[in-house]
């Protein structure tokens, strides 16, 4: 079945004339998956500052690291993360 059959029996399936270059679909920032870890980081950070409970601050830093690792485009996410770092 595979491509070998096709190429041998029915000429070449390739059509360079109809090739279209790749257009990356524009993704609006709202469509991006929600950055839960960043949100949690902000919550923990505030809790850590409010209650002077250092475990919260550490959890916030860890969540920050996670959201850093998972971010897809730098521009939008860096803002959030810098917020969380504060």
């Amino acid at each position: 079945m595979s491509s070998h059959n096709n190429s041998s029996s029915v000429n070449d399936p390739r059509q360079p004339s109809s090739a279209k270059p790749f257009l990356p679909p524009a993704v609006s920032p709202q469509d991006l998956p929600v950055d839960y870890s960043g949100f949690i980081a902000v919550v923990f950070g505030i809790a850590g500052v409010m209650f002077r409970y250092k475990l919260c601050s550490w959890l916030a830093i860890i969540c920050c690291a996670q959201s850093l690792a998972n971010m897809r485009n730098v521009e939008t996410d860096l803002k959030q993360i810098s917020m969380a770092m504060m």
Partner: peptide, 17 residues
């Protein structure tokens, strides 16, 4: 991202991409 990769191909009969 770190875990999503995309591959694109085009230029074949019957399909645009």
């Amino acid at each position: 991202g770190q875990n999503v990769f995309k591959f694109y191909a085009s230029g074949r009969r019957y399909c645009s991409g």
